[in-house]
C-alpha cells in the first residue's frame, strides 16, 4: 500500500517557555508525521502540552527547537504572510477557548476566514450558510456570541473552522462543552469530513471519543507517544 502524501511532519520539535528562573518544557522532542486523510485524536492530562502542540501544528506558534514541515516545506522559512495564507485556505482551527469576535454576529464570525482568502470564493455566502447548517446554528446567525451558550459558541467556532473547506482541521477539545447528543452529531460530522479526504486532528479528554479515530497520540509532560486507546 503506497502511503498518502505528507501533510505535516514534526522533527524533534520542542517548545520551552522561560518563566523567569523556571523553565517550562511544554513539548519535548515531538516527532511524528500526519498524512493526508488521517484522523488523529490527541489525548493527555490537563497541562500536558496538547494545546501547545495544536498551536504549533497550526503555525500559530513557532517551536523552540526542531523543525515543522508543511507539505514537505519547512514552516520556519515561510514568511508570516505565507503562513497566514495557508491558515486562511488550508487549515481550520477550533480553539479550546472558541475565540469568537464578540462584536461580530455569528454569521460574520463564521465568514471571517473567507475575507482573508487570496481570492474570496464566489459562493462565500452559501458556504457560510452551509457551515452554520452543519453545526445547527442557522437560526442564530444574527446573534452576537455573547448571547449564546457555551455549547452554541463552540458550534459557531466549529462552523468557522469548516467554512474555508480546509484540507486539515485542527480542533482543540471541540466537544468539551457539548451534551452527548450534540457531541455525537459533531463527531459524525468530523467522521464524514474525514471520509471525504480531510485530515482531522482533535484534542479530547475522552477515550470514548478518541476511540472513533484511527490513530491516537498521547501527550504526557510534553512527551508525545503513539498509542492505542488508553
Amino acid at each position: 500500500m503506497s502511503l498518502a502524501p505528507e501533510v505535516l511532519r514534526l522533527d524533534r520539535v520542542g517548545k520551552r517557555y522561560p518563566m523567569g528562573d523556571v523553565i517550562v518544557d511544554a513539548l519535548v522532542d515531538a516527532s511524528f508525521t500526519l498524512r493526508e486523510g488521517e484522523a488523529v485524536a490527541i489525548l493527555g492530562p490537563s497541562g500536558s502540552g496538547k494545546s501547545t502542540l495544536m498551536h504549533l501544528l497550526g503555525f500559530l506558534d513557532s517551536p523552540s527547537s526542531g523543525e515543522i514541515l508543511f507539505e514537505g516545506r519547512p514552516v520556519a522559512v515561510l514568511t508570516e504572510s505565507q503562513r497566514a495564507r495557508i491558515r486562511a485556505e488550508k487549515i481550520g482551527f477550533v480553539f479550546q477557548a472558541f475565540n469568537l469576535l464578540p462584536r461580530l454576529s455569528v454569521r460574520a464570525n463564521v465568514a471571517l476566514p473567507l475575507a482573508y482568502h487570496g481570492s474570496p470564493p464566489a459562493d462565500a455566502e452559501d458556504r457560510v450558510d452551509r457551515a452554520l447548517e452543519l453545526v445547527g446554528m442557522s437560526n442564530r446567525a444574527h446573534h452576537k456570541p455573547g448571547e449564546l451558550s457555551g455549547g452554541q459558541r463552540q458550534r459557531v467556532a466549529i462552523a468557522r473552522a469548516l467554512v474555508n473547506e480546509p484540507r486539515i482541521l485542527l480542533a482543540d477539545e471541540p466537544t468539551g462543552n457539548l451534551d452527548t447528543k450534540t457531541a455525537a452529531a459533531i463527531l459524525d460530522l468530523f467522521k464524514e469530513l474525514n471520509r471525504l479526504g480531510r485530515t482531522i486532528v482533535i484534542v479530547t479528554h475522552s477515550p470514548e471519543i478518541a476511540g472513533h479515530f484511527r490513530r491516537q497520540l498521547h501527550v504526557r509532560d510534553g512527551l508525545v507517544t503513539e498509542g492505542g486507546v488508553a
Binding site: G58, L60, E80, S81, A84, R85, R87, A88, E89, F93, F95, N99, L100, L101, L112, P113, Y116, H117, R160, N164
Partner: peptide
C-alpha cells in the same frame, strides 16, 4: 489585541 490574534489565527496576514 485578542481580536487581532483571532483574525491572524483564521488567516489574516500582517498586511490585512
Amino acid at each position: 489585541v485578542r481580536e487581532i490574534g483571532i483574525r491572524k489565527a483564521v488567516g489574516a496576514t500582517p498586511f490585512n
